[in-house]
Design a protein around this nucleic acid. Structure first.
Lengths: 214, 214
DNA sequence: TTCCAACTACCGGCTTCCGGGTAAGCGAAG
DNA sequence: CTTCGCTTACCCGGAAGCCGGTAGTTGGAA
């Protein structure tokens, strides 16, 4: 019996996934929670075999939650589940230790396969994501394998969030008690790191990662 | 036996909802499709009692799909299902004839209640949405009940989409073979209609309505 | 200790955004 | 036929975005 914890901020989706997974009698959903904090709190006592983690979570994102969860419970397998297909996000989830990544556009059977695979100690990417990662490898090879300094600093993440909420640089400067020019520097740096070229792209990135809600 | 058609662009969610709803033996999911065109095509032959429609659909949004569906099949009840809580969007769905609106953050039981209610000819809003609409009424009363000319024209929708894709006004002008100043006029008009004040807010609105993907 | 990444701050310059106005052509609805 | 909404197009001006550069401080890692 595989013990599963579901983490997804939409109650409806959580209940529905639970209902779908429990059709399979070898699976048992021991917990279904809506945010990262609760997941971390309950993981110790419920000892799930697999955590199915939505990437876009309010507050701490699924990425940060996964990092913290695996730091405390390295024996738990994390299977990422996401609405969005973005190579950077897949990369980050795998970097923090997720064993697999399933798109919500994939069929339900891919989720069950993913669970079986990660429990068996293997990695699993749904087909669409696998294609995406393959493209990424090809691009990386073409670019001569130069280092992607992807991870944003704390300040950059904060600035990205506020910009994606629709605030202007001067507004943010006032809110954080720093100079507008400094906000500008952070914006430029984070946009260069992520290869974004205007606030609209930044906004969409922030939404995909769950940094802000649409 | 209530015949249900599910419309949601995420296969995983579609299958999961199907699984959840069919726990109830009085419900029968006769079709589960991923886009508006298919829904319109299959509605005639399958004759569902209720269509559970995700608002954010690729291509034609759930709003447009609902309008066209009810124009051809006024006897079908449409129950909107959405990730987002936005008064303007709720308003638009109800304007085009939806009988109810359920947030994905609501519990599964609200969806089942919604289905039962709309089949019985009543309207149904999940509690969060009901609160939202009540707030809207209060604001409307405070504003003296002035007319909200909310609906966007075809051109405005097009401009909104392109802006939310990260294109600049000059880019869009070139793409559509019109003057940049004209793009600007459409931008200003649509932003005034929707009470948005910068492209970031516009982007998030476009994402909420499914005009663009994040 | 040395080094590097992060945070802070400023300069300049060009482009774009955003809000305000005006106005003409055109097709549908009244 | 008149009116109304949509689309087209232009004017202006202040604010902000976007990109390039330089540079001081600080705190932690090698």
């Amino acid at each position: 019996m595989i013990r599963i914890m579901l983490v997804d901020d939409h109650t409806m989706v959580r209940e529905a996934l639970c209902s779908m997974l429990e059709q399979d009698k070898t699976l048992k959903v021991v917990s279904a929670v809506g945010d990262g904090e609760t997941a971390l709190r309950l993981a110790a006592e419920l000892a799930p075999t697999v955590v199915v983690m939505d990437v876009a979570l309010p507050g701490a994102s699924g990425i940060e939650t996964t990092r913290r969860l695996l730091a405390r419970h390295p024996e738990i397998k994390v299977l990422a589940l996401s609405t969005y297909l973005d190579r950077r996000i897949v990369q980050q989830m795998l970097d923090v230790g997720a064993s697999g990544y399933i798109a919500k556009s994939a069929a339900g059977v891919e989720l069950r396969q993913g669970i079986q695979n990660v429990v068996a100690g293997r990695s699993y990417l749904c087909s669409e994501v696998a294609a995406l990662v393959a493209d990424g490898l090809r691009e990386l090879a073409a670019a001569g394998g130069k280092h992607d300094t992807n991870a944003l600093s704390r300040r950059e993440t904060q600035i990205a969030t506020l910009l994606a909420e629709g605030k202007s640089a001067p507004d943010i400067a006032a809110e954080l008690h720093i100079a507008p020019s400094t906000v500008d520097v952070h914006r430029r740096n984070l946009m260069r790191k992520l290869d974004l070229h205007n606030v609209v792209e930044l906004t969409r990135y922030a939404i995909r990662t769950g940094l802000v809600l649409p």
